[in-house]
């Protein structure tokens, strides 16, 4: 280890003297116990869900919420536009019906009535 590096380490070690005010850790424990007791209280459970939701929204931040809402709105519009409509608006994929004359397969001749023959003559 170089001399400079050793000196740097000695300087940085001076930060060990940065300690909180006296009594801080007693207050800290008290604050922690209050928080834990609050979380553990059974009647706080239904409100806890609401409280957690509020805390979550706060932690997310307004900027990110705006972006997320925008994306969600855009996704909703896309879904609405692409949602399949009713049967009349569906494209007709059926084969077109082509009408063709039926070829004559030798229909039996209709027998003529004798009266018709008489009238002719």
């Amino acid at each position: 280890m170089s001399n400079e590096e050793e000196q740097i380490q000695k300087l940085i070690r001076l930060k060990r003297y940065e300690v909180p005010r006296e009594g801080y850790f007693d207050d800290f424990l008290e604050e922690f116990q209050k928080r834990r007791d609050g979380d553990a209280r059974p009647e706080a459970a239904p409100l806890g869900v609401l409280g957690k939701s509020i805390a979550w929204f706060r932690s997310v931040g307004s900027g990110r919420l705006v972006v997320a809402s925008g994306l969600a709105y855009a996704a909703l519009i896309m879904v609405v536009l692409m949602w399949p409509k009713g049967p009349e608006s569906r494209p007709d994929n059926r084969e077109p019906v082509i009408f063709q004359p039926i070829p004559d397969q030798g229909t039996p001749p209709v027998p003529r009535k004798p009266e018709d023959q008489q009238e002719k003559f």
Binding site: R16, E18, V19, P20, F25, F28, L29, F32, Q33, R36
Partner: peptide, 20 residues
């Protein structure tokens, strides 16, 4: 709970230093 409190008392000064 008192046992966890003892862990808080023991480790909070060290963790405070790290976080600070």
């Amino acid at each position: 709970m008192a046992a966890f409190d003892a862990l808080v008392v023991k480790f909070s000064p060290r963790l405070y230093g790290m976080v600070y």
